[in-house]
């Protein structure tokens, strides 16, 4: 099937099998390997990307479902060499270790802050409930998002 979509501001048109997941499409067809796969059942959130402004688990979406959509992946978060405030905060506050869940965390954090620019610690934790991190114990991820919120609001 032919699909056309915009990823990180660039338009792509490809002929793909309907059973191809959006994650596979990003990773295999577009070589955007920053979006990761950690599970089979939409439990881990490592595959989170933004579709039409909303965080979605791209492993539980067929690429054909995203036809016509506008996507942002982790590769599209920075503005050239200038990292997004969320990315900066993760670096500054050690919000990542092995880095595998990180793209999903950043993309989910963007949705949390979009819906709620001043989240409490509890709201951040609740907002991250769809994303597993096995390294950080979430402590510094929560801290990073708190600081990113401050940075964005100032």
């Amino acid at each position: 099937m032919q699909i056309t979509l915009t990823v990180n501001g660039k338009q792509y048109s490809n002929d793909i099998e309907p059973r191809m997941s959006l994650t596979q499409y990003l990773r295999e067809v577009l070589d955007l390997t920053g979006t990761h796969v950690g599970c089979d059942t939409s439990g881990c959130g490592a595959c989170t990307v933004s579709l039409n402004g909303a965080a979605v688990k791209s492993c539980t979406l067929l690429a054909v479902q995203a036809d016509g959509g506008e996507l942002t992946t982790i590769e599209g978060m920075a503005n050239g060499n200038e990292m997004h405030p969320i990315q900066k905060a993760f670096k500054e506050h050690h919000g990542l270790q092995c880095g595998f869940c990180t793209p999903g965390m950043v993309m989910t954090a963007a949705n949390i802050l979009k819906d709620n620019p001043n989240p409490s610690e509890e709201e951040i934790r609740h907002g991250l409930e769809g994303n597993f991190c096995r390294c950080t114990g979430y402590h510094n991820i929560v801290k990073s998002i708190q600081h990113a919120a401050e940075e964005i609001n100032n």
Partner: peptide, 9 residues
Amino acid sequence: IGDIQVRNR
């Protein structure tokens, strides 16, 4: 229900 991502879809 679910989480942010699930609620979005």
